[in-house]
C-alpha cells in the first residue's frame, strides 16, 4: 500500500505546482480528487472579490497566542492571495470546539448572513464520531447545511476529520468520513479529504502524528499545508467551471 502511495505521491509532484507551497505539502496534492465545479466561486474570482466562510470545530483552530494566524483558515487566505493576486480574498471564520454537524447547521443561517460568503468551507465529522451521533442524522445534517449554503448563493466544500493514529481505535472516524464522501458525491460538491491527506503524510513519514508534544511546530506546518492544498482545490474547482476567469494564478 505504501509503495502504491509513493507512486501516487510522485505523480502528484508532476501535477500543477503551487508556487510557494512547502514541498512537504505537495506530496499529497494528488489527494485532491473530488473536483466538482465551484460555479459561484468562479464568478466571484472573475469579479475579483472572493468571500469565504470557514465553519468548523476544534480542528479548524490552533491553540496559543498566534493560533488564529497559524490555523488553516488564515493560511488559506494567504495561499489564495498568492495564487490569485488580482483577487481580493477575505476568509472569515465561525470556529468553536466540540460542535457536531447539526450544531453547526443551527448557527449557519446567522453566520451566512453575517459573512455573505461566495464559498463555505465546512469542516466537520470529528465531534460527531466522538459522540457516536447516528450516521443517518449526521448525513441529514450535512444535507441541511449544504442546502442552506446553496440557497444563500454560496458554493460548499466539505472538509473531513483529521487523521489521528493514536486515537484511531477509539474514534470511528472512518464511518463519518465515508458518509461525507457520499453526501458530497450526491450534491456534486468537492470534498477536501483531510483524513486521506494526513494518512498519506503519516504513511510516508512526512509528519509523525504519534509523538506526544506540547510544541506547536508540527501543528503549524500541518495547518500551513492544509491551507495550501485547500486553496489549490478551490482554484482548480473554480477553473473547471470557467477556465478563463480563474486562470490568473
Amino acid at each position: 500500500m505504501k509503495r502504491l502511495a509513493l507512486v501516487f505521491a510522485l505523480t502528484g509532484l508532476i501535477g500543477p505546482a503551487s508556487a510557494g507551497a512547502p514541498a512537504e505539502c505537495l506530496i499529497a496534492q494528488h489527494q485532491n480528487e473530488y473536483i466538482f465545479p465551484l460555479r459561484m466561486t468562479a464568478r466571484a474570482i472573475a469579479a475579483k472579490r472572493l468571500d469565504i466562510l470557514v465553519i468548523g470545530a476544534g480542528s479548524s483552530a490552533l491553540p496559543g497566542p498566534n493560533g488564529t494566524r497559524n490555523a488553516y483558515p488564515a493560511r488559506l487566505q494567504n495561499a489564495l492571495a498568492e495564487m490569485l493576486p488580482a483577487v481580493t480574498v477575505k476568509v472569515s471564520t465561525d470556529v468553536s470546539p466540540h460542535r457536531t454537524a447539526l450544531e453547526m447547521v443551527h448557527v449557519l443561517p446567522a453566520a451566512l448572513s453575517a459573512a455573505k460568503p461566495t464559498l463555505v468551507i465546512w469542516q466537520t465529522g470529528t465531534v460527531d464520531a466522538l459522540q457516536g451521533v447516528d450516521a443517518d442524522q449526521f448525513s441529514q445534517a450535512l444535507d441541511q447545511g449544504i442546502n442552506l449554503a446553496h440557497n444563500a448563493g454560496a458554493d460548499v466544500v466539505l472538509v473531513n476529520a483529521q487523521y489521528s493514529p493514536r486515537t484511531e481505535s477509539m474514534i470511528a472516524l472512518g464511518t463519518y468520513a465515508e458518509n461525507m464522501r457520499w453526501v458530497a458525491l450526491q450534491h456534486e460538491i468537492p470534498l477536501f479529504n483531510r483524513f486521506g491527506i494526513m494518512r498519506l503524510w503519516s504513511d510516508l513519514g512526512t509528519f509523525d502524528f504519534t509523538t506526544a508534544t506540547k510544541k506547536l511546530d508540527m501543528a503549524v506546518r500541518v495547518h500551513e499545508c492544509i491551507g495550501w492544498l485547500l486553496a489549490e482545490l478551490i482554484v482548480q474547482a473554480a477553473k473547471q467551471e470557467a477556465p478563463r476567469a480563474a486562470g490568473e494564478r
Binding site: 470545530a57 466522538l130 477509539m170
Partner: peptide
C-alpha cells in the same frame, strides 16, 4: 488502553480528538 493514551498523548494538533 484509553487511560494509557489519555496520560501519554498530548499534541496541540489534536485538542478535539482528546475528547476521548
Amino acid at each position: 488502553e484509553i487511560a494509557y493514551v489519555a496520560h501519554s498523548f498530548e499534541n496541540p494538533l489534536y485538542t478535539e480528538e482528546m475528547g476521548v
